[in-house]
Computed example of a mutant assay.
Amino acid sequence: MISVKVLGPGCSKCRTLEAKVRNIVSSNNIQADITKVEDINEMMSFGIMMTPGLVINEQVKSYGIVPKDEQILNWLKES
């Protein structure tokens, strides 16, 4: 199972990214455990300075942007 973490305090971009990831995982039948991380200390442990952040299998894939659906899907398939 793929571990996915969406890092962010709950801003609109953070909610958008979380919804995108959940939709992509569901529509592509990907087995993933999706966690929303709002704790600032946990977010800082990944070394990101801007939210939202996307972490797949403990690797930071993006931060500060909402990636395109195709990019998120590619990252999930690589994992």
Rank of each mutant, 00 (worst) to 15 (best):
S12R: 00
C11K: 00
G8E: 04
E70T: 14
E42W: 07
E42V: 12
R15G: 09
S79G: 15
I34F: 03
D39V: 03
A32M: 00
N57R: 08
R22L: 05
Q71S: 12
G53P: 07
L17K: 01
N41G: 10
K5Y: 05
Q59T: 12
S27Y: 08
S79N: 05
E38M: 10
N41V: 06
K36E: 13
K77G: 10
R15N: 15
L76Y: 08
V6R: 01
N74V: 15
K13G: 05
G47A: 08
I34Y: 00
Q71W: 09
T51W: 06
K77D: 09
L73V: 13
E70Q: 09
V21S: 04
N29A: 15
E78Q: 12
N74K: 13
W75R: 02
K61Q: 12
K68E: 15
C11H: 08
E58H: 11
T51E: 01
G47M: 06
V4L: 02
V21D: 05
I30T: 08
L17N: 00
P67A: 04
Q71V: 15
I2G: 03
N23W: 02
I2L: 13
K68H: 12
P67I: 04
M1Y: 06
Q31V: 10
G53S: 07
P67F: 00
E70F: 09
N74R: 13
T16W: 00
I30C: 04
M43E: 14
V6F: 01
K13F: 00
D69G: 11
M44L: 15
V66H: 03
I24D: 07
S12G: 02
I56C: 10
S62G: 01
V60A: 09
V4Q: 01
G10S: 01
P67C: 03
P67H: 05
I56P: 06
K77F: 11
S27R: 13
S79L: 06
G10K: 00
E42N: 10
A19T: 14
F46T: 06
Q59R: 14
C11G: 11
D69H: 10
E18V: 00
M1R: 10
N28K: 04
L73Q: 01
V21Y: 05
E58Q: 14
P52G: 07
L54K: 04
M49R: 11
T16A: 12
Q71T: 15
D33H: 12
I56N: 08
T16Y: 00
I56K: 11
K77N: 15
L73P: 09
S12T: 13
M44I: 11
M49H: 06
I48P: 10
R15Q: 15
G53C: 07
V6D: 03
M50D: 04
R22E: 12
N29T: 06
N41T: 06
G8R: 02
T35E: 15
S62I: 07
E70S: 14
I30M: 02
I2A: 06
I34G: 05
N41E: 14
I72A: 02
I30S: 06
D69Y: 04
T35Y: 01
L76S: 13
K68Q: 14
T35C: 05
V66F: 07
S79H: 09
P67E: 09
N23F: 04
